[in-house]
Amino acid sequence: MRIFNVASFAIITGFGLLLALQLPGISPAARTYPLVMIVLVVVSSAVVAVREVAGWAGKAPLDGKLNAILTAPSARQLRLAAFVAVWLAYWWVLPVIGFMIATALAIFASLYVLKTRSLLLAALVAAVFAILFSVLFTTVLYVPVPLGALDEALIEWIYALQH
């Protein structure tokens, strides 16, 4: 745990230093305030890192929820990782395959990895909510979502209904 803490605070210090490297490219009048903040971040994170290395920070127990995740059986951890992967993949494939299909697949996959009792129910929920969100975005919220073939068909159908 101490290695993780030291590495983490070193990364935060590094983040401050990375921003410090950008300072010369900023107009002088606009750089004083961020410089002060960078100094504050770098100094405080470096001090915490040093205290961790020296063992002065004491041994505080890991947060209960995170501890439960880290000490859980690997099958449960894998499923949680899959849940996270599903939603990262959703962000990635959304512009590629369009809103409706991506949303339906993501909801179904999420319910599947979280061991929903009935897969049929999961498929039904995924399909119904993907269509519902799509109609909501198109006709009420007017949010232009990434379009796939199904989304275009839905928009055309709604347009035909309206005219």
Binding site: S110, L111, F133
Partner: peptide, 13 residues
């Protein structure tokens, strides 16, 4: 499982 899924989808949307 339903709550986690829908909080995730609502957060992203």
């Amino acid at each position: 499982s339903m709550l986690a899924t829908f909080i995730a989808v609502f957060s992203i949307l």
